[in-house]
Nucleic acid binder design. Sequence first.
RNA 1: GCGCUCGUAGCUCAAUCGGAUAGAGCAUCGGCCUUCUAAGCCGACGGUUGCAGGUUCGAAUCCUGCCGGGCGCGCCA
Length: 585
Amino acid sequence: MKKQLAELVHRALEQLKADGILPADAVVDVQIERGRGEGHGDFATNTAMRLAKPAGRPPRELAQALVEALPAHEHVERVEVAGPGFINFFISPDAAFAVVSEILDAAEHFGRGEPTGQRIMVEFVSANPTGPLHVGHGRGAAYGGTLCNLLTAAGHQVHREYYVNDAGRQMDILAASVLIRYLQLFDTDLRFPDNGYRGDYIHAIAGDLRARDGEAYRIDSAALAAGLPADASEGGDKEKHIDAVVRRARELLGEERYQAVHQAALDAILGDIRDDLAAFGVDYDEWFSERSLTDTGAVDHALGKLREAGHLYEAEGALWFRSSEFGDEKDRVVRRADGAITYFASDIAYHLNKLERGFDTCIDVWGADHHGYVPRVRAAIRAFDADDSRLEVRLVQFAILYQGGERLQMSTRSGEFVTLRELREEVGGDAARFFYVMRKPEQHLDFDLDLAKSESSDNPVYYIQYAHARICSVLRQMAEKGLTHDAEHGRANLSRLTESHEQDLLTSLAKYPELVESAAAAREPHQLAHYLRELANGFHTYYNAHTFLTDEPALRDARLNLILATRQVIRNGLDILGVSAPETM
RNA sequence: GCGCUCGUAGCUCAAUCGGAUAGAGCAUCGGCCUUCUAAGCCGACGGUUGCAGGUUCGAAUCCUGCCGGGCGCGCCA
């Protein structure tokens, strides 16, 4: 409808240009928006006001001229000029009714956009595989997963990817942590490093390792501990200590056995993360290994390209990328003085790889604490002479959990944190997903556990699901009362839907496809959450005001068509959010 | 200190590239169940959009400066 109206306005503009009222070179993008309040019509456009200056005429006068030049349209009942120069469109009732049949015909496809041909990759969560996902990752998972659903619904071709940080120091520390817990199974006196990973899951992995491979990794614990630099609690440095532990463990085990422990730890934790995300309704097309970037030479390839272009230089023994020439605040090291490749170098290679895979748009979903990292990645893309608008970084703020009015604190390293799994078990997957995406991603989120658990109208998830269940219930009641629903008869009698509640509901339903499109374009799933609440509200209000199962077949059939259409849209919307649409509460 | 980001009703948040009278929920107060699920509905109360300027037909939205919160400023990942 919006498109059709825009077309009408364009034709009127051409007419005005031909008449000499508008300068021939005047350009304006015609914006059609939904009328907000009473009396503002179904749609409105501000075109006249935007043209007032270039045309050198008062906006209202222009608006009037536009209205007169506007071609007739079967669905436009009347058009009027209002306020400072808005043009309001009033849609004919028949056009409004048509959406009901449209929804029932399209069913689960209603609201899905035409294929755009755009290939979009979304990389999200990508948490280090050093422990289970916690509630901080949950928001990225819910946001990313929902965004992917939304983009798919809008007609884009979406690729979901998880970047697995399976290389680097943190993974070595994880492997060492597992090894020491494993050795403690034989020698309870062995000391655990301050900076090791302390969670219970480390014990579990160590136990599994022993069950699978027996004593294969049993090394002399005295030799492991002897002569190491002091740990923090011994008056030393925890970083130096843990690095020494890793080095010693590697020597004593030998590379092959060390890699086996490393791999076992990675497999266990990554498997857990996969299961967790799958249970949360988040699925991936690809799990991209950081280690593979060095193995396949992708890092050398990327650094080679930068070197050829003259963007690398050596200083103080390290290799630097001249990122400050591309908008970063300072240059960055890509290869340390000790020869090791930095995390940033892998990331440069990863993003080059993404570009080379030919995605039109690459969306990175990151925790907001990484925002300082954006300019340097963008710098790398510019240095490759690529269009940096192909990279979009979406920052997600952390969620703060509240229970009983108290803020729950957490920290990963100490092992004291609420896992995503615990959250799901506590409040349920539906409530968790909905609460996570209820707010704008860049806004801090106060996650009220008590509210998410409550089965009351305070809880927006239940409120929406209840609307769906209530419609199902009406149909069950219908059967019990021995009534029937003739959908074709209902279609023929949609003009009986004259109540204001019905008109409002029709308007809400018609808005859905536009909403999917705009929420996808803005990368804002919360718009959909808000929309569904409003739609549910429109239904509940209607439910309380009128009886659907009346004795009059024509009216009953029409009303049932309307609420079935409502149920369909709620279902489609909840599906995008990854929330179930129950038939009973 | 520098940079990024956010400040909207008592609380949590909306407000479609700058649009018409800034909207919801919660909380508070008052109504509605012999009638399709009251997990619901209706009404009332509630605002100088942090402050001060600027840009224009028009600003919560854009610009500048303050104030306040969060985050980031490693040859860590």
